[in-house]
Structures are given as C-alpha cells and as structure tokens.
Amino acid sequence: MAMIIDEQVATNLYFDKNFNSQAVKLLPGEYYVTDKDILLVTVLGSCVAACIRDCYSGIGGMNHFMLPDGGGDVSNPLNASARYGTYAMEILINQLLKLGARRGNLEAKVFGGGNVLDGLTIANIGQRNADFVLKFLQTEKIRVVAQDLIDIFPRKVYFFPKNNKVLVKKLRNLHGTTISQREKDYRQRLDKVNSGGEVELFS
C-alpha cells in the first residue's frame, strides 16, 4: 500500500499572553480551521501559509505547507508537486466547508515563500511555493485580499479569523536555524513518501 502524505490538524494549543487569546501554533504540514475567536500562529521560511475565511461567517483556517520536489514544471497539472499542493489546499478548504463556510464567500491572505533555506537542491523554492498558491487560488476563483510573499526573511504570521486581522512580523534578526531545520525535515518527509493515496475496489 502506498504511503500517504497526510496533512495533519495542528494540535499545539496554548494561551497567548501578548494577545490575551487562545491560540494554535501550526507547524509545517499542519492546518487548522475554526469558527471560534482564536488566534492562529505560524512561522514561515520558504513554506507558504494560506489564511482563508468566509467573509460573512468568519469561519476561517490556515495551513502551512511547501511543495515537494516533483522534478518538473509545477504548471503541469500532473506534476507530483502540483498534485500535493492542490491536496494541501483542498484539505483546508474542505474542512472550512464542513464547518459551514460557503465556497463563494471565501477570501484568502497568503504569506511566506521567503528565500531562506540553505543547501536545498531547488533554487527559488520559496518563489515556487508562492507561485503555486497564487495560481491555485486564481484557478479556484478565491479572491486574494492580502499577500506578503517571497523576500529573504522568515515571517511570523498571526491570523485572527473571526475579525479578519493578520499581523506579519518579519524576523530580520533571526538566523532561522530552527525554522530552516523544521522545513528541511518536512521537505525530507515529503520527498520520501509516495504522493498517491490508497485505492480500494469494492467489487
């Protein structure tokens, strides 16, 4: 049976004293959706995060992902990278719809794709992730209402889905060792597993 690249629900819940709010911290490969007034936080290097919300109900969510190396052109719809990226985005959108969001009401804010990873085989990996997320949202006709992409710094993103506020802090003085290591580990996980899900015939 093929191994599945499985996007995981973020489980790191804490109380953020600075914002006096319940918060969820997302790591690479995680997503979280909510209809509550809570804070979603993540730190991005070359990964991207899509903050998507229903602009009427305030149901919102965030993911944090990067594309695996599909060894080819991401604009080719059958490229393994594009298929995985589409999957990561679809998981987030499906969970929002299950919570009651309406597809036609969705709008997005996208962040990350910084050129901050050293020693990786793919040049401009952040650019590639950023290009993918913008193209995906355009195809899905989900309006991008804010973006802060590419550049050379890691970012810390604070998303308040209920009131549609996002704060982005560029981590100019951070060397980014932990961020880079986390993203490298995530990337290695992505590159090792098969990008196809399981198949079962009933008859």
Binding site: A2, I4, I5, L78, R83, Y84, T86, Y87, E90, I91, N94, N194, S195, G196, G197, E198, V199, E200, L201, F202, S203
Partner: peptide, 29 residues
C-alpha cells in the same frame, strides 16, 4: 476524495460505490 475513514467508506460501499480512491490521486493508479 480526501475522506479515508472506514466509516465513510462503509457508507459509500453500502450506497453502491464501485471503488474508493483517496487523494492526492496518482494519475497512473
């Protein structure tokens, strides 16, 4: 589908599904 739980698969099977492919899909498969 992205759905892979046994419970929802059982519902699909009972409703007459021929097979189940979990995303991300592999074009060859």
């Amino acid at each position: 589908t992205t759905e892979s739980s046994d419970e929802i698969k059982a519902k699909g099977r009972a409703a007459g599904a021929t097979g189940w492919l979990v995303k991300p899909f592999d074009p060859k498969r």
